[in-house]
Amino acid sequence: MRRGAWRQRLSKWRRKERPCVPKSILVINLMHIGDLLLVTPILRTLRTQFPQAHIALLADQKLQDLVKNNQNIDELITIDKKGQDDGLFPYLSFAWKLRQRRFEWVINLHQNERASFLAAFSGAKTIVGYATAVLRHCFTKYMLNRKAEKHQIESHFDVLRELLSVTERDDQGLEIWLDADAKEEAAAIWQREVRHERPVVGLNIGASWPTKRWRHEHFAKLADRLIERGYGIAFFGGPMDEEIVAETRALMKPDTQEAVSVFTGKLSLMQLAAVLPFCRVLVTNDSGPMHVAVAMGVPLVTMFGASPVPGFYPYSNTSVLIQSSEPCHPCGSHHCEHHSCMWKISVEQVEKETLRLLEASPEELASDRAGLGPHECRIIR
């Protein structure tokens, strides 16, 4: 074969392996609070690497507060998964409208049928990311989500590096931008609900799975002990957590209630992000509010039982993760008969780590974090 022909083939191969600089990029993530926030370092990196590109994010409409002010995107596209876009025909109509946008790159960071189809049907020149087995052949390149092996954000960066040859990263951790109204509302809500002068520890006792929840009795005992030490308590969570918060409060000592404030079911996601920084520390299960606290720079203590530590630990070196020592950890199961992984994490251990974040000197905290990366939490096994 002539030398010129070989050069032509090599040139075509290189163009295929290294996509051209895109004019428009769509990132898809239709998952929950924490999962959506774990995409924000990817958005920042794309903005840094492709400053002239139009970058859009497709997310669940009910979570738009978390990303609507994100300064690294030009456009937020939302899908009402449980409302007007639910059902076959509304969903196909949404997919058709998305296809008309003619994005050059589509990056799918949600490995399920709905997101994979939207990516595959987008008509983009380059379609990469996670995909279901049926739709993989429609992607330019795909890979499995490696959240079982490494942090979810690291797996997302693998998509950029391995499938799009984006090797430089701009990672400043999880990010939420508040608007002025949210800050004013948060200050007013805090002043109305917190009727004492104590420094406040937040408690987020809910979680999407029952197996992620620490015992109500443990949370109640921890709250009583912190109040005895002069701290106030603020309960967080969504409307679905109101019942378990009421059950937990009923287990607390009657004379501690004046130091307790309840924000459960009273805050939008934007207001939650604005209110959390009023807390000195958040004690939380593995949950959406945990990741919101990380994005807002709130130190936290979290307990992991069923949850896999490598994939979803709080992405912050001001956080402490107490990992269950049970041999069945992490099972990833939504239901469990014995639930021993979370029940055996003691009140004493959680109290100790909470008080250290509250009361240790800056030098002691710096020593705790020595050797950790900027987004690597301290893990207690």
Results as ranks from 00 to 15, higher is better:
residue 62 K to W: 04
residue 163 L to F: 10
residue 23 K to P: 00
residue 189 I to G: 04
residue 134 V to C: 03
residue 128 V to C: 14
residue 284 T to S: 13
residue 374 P to V: 14
residue 72 N to F: 08
residue 176 I to E: 00
residue 371 G to Y: 15
residue 107 I to N: 01
residue 257 Q to P: 00
residue 332 G to L: 01
residue 351 E to R: 02
residue 345 I to K: 02
residue 65 D to V: 05
residue 176 I to N: 01
residue 80 D to S: 13
residue 97 K to I: 03
residue 43 L to Y: 05
residue 364 E to M: 09
residue 110 H to A: 09
residue 338 H to A: 11
residue 336 C to K: 10
residue 215 R to T: 06
residue 107 I to Q: 00
residue 78 T to Y: 11
residue 329 H to P: 04
residue 126 T to L: 11
residue 31 M to V: 06
residue 186 A to E: 03
residue 187 A to M: 08
residue 173 G to R: 13
residue 66 L to A: 00
residue 342 M to I: 12
residue 2 R to F: 12
residue 201 V to E: 07
residue 217 E to W: 01
residue 89 F to G: 04
residue 370 A to N: 11
residue 54 H to D: 01
residue 82 K to W: 08
residue 123 G to M: 05
residue 283 V to I: 05
residue 27 V to C: 04
residue 351 E to I: 03
residue 209 W to F: 15
residue 267 L to C: 11
residue 60 D to V: 00
residue 213 R to L: 06
residue 353 E to L: 05
residue 12 K to N: 14
residue 288 G to T: 02
residue 99 R to W: 09
residue 341 C to T: 06
residue 172 Q to Y: 11
residue 5 A to F: 15
residue 50 F to H: 13
residue 11 S to N: 10
residue 229 R to M: 02
residue 238 G to H: 11
residue 327 P to T: 10
residue 289 P to H: 06
residue 62 K to Q: 10
residue 153 I to S: 03
residue 21 V to L: 13
residue 231 Y to N: 00
residue 368 D to T: 12
residue 217 E to L: 06
residue 21 V to H: 13
residue 78 T to M: 07
residue 108 N to R: 06
residue 58 L to P: 06
residue 23 K to W: 14
residue 140 T to Y: 01
residue 259 A to T: 04
residue 11 S to V: 02
residue 158 D to G: 04
residue 334 H to G: 12
residue 239 P to R: 12
residue 203 L to Q: 03
residue 334 H to I: 08
residue 39 V to E: 02
residue 324 S to D: 11
residue 178 L to Y: 10
residue 244 I to M: 14
residue 351 E to L: 15
residue 237 G to C: 06
residue 170 D to F: 13
residue 29 N to S: 10
residue 48 T to Q: 10
residue 242 E to M: 09
residue 199 P to A: 06
residue 18 R to W: 07
residue 142 Y to S: 15
residue 2 R to W: 11
residue 66 L to N: 01
residue 83 G to I: 08
residue 77 I to W: 07
residue 6 W to V: 15
residue 112 N to Q: 10
residue 118 L to P: 03
residue 368 D to H: 12
residue 148 A to K: 13
residue 187 A to Y: 04
residue 337 E to A: 15
residue 18 R to V: 07
residue 17 E to T: 08
residue 180 A to F: 13
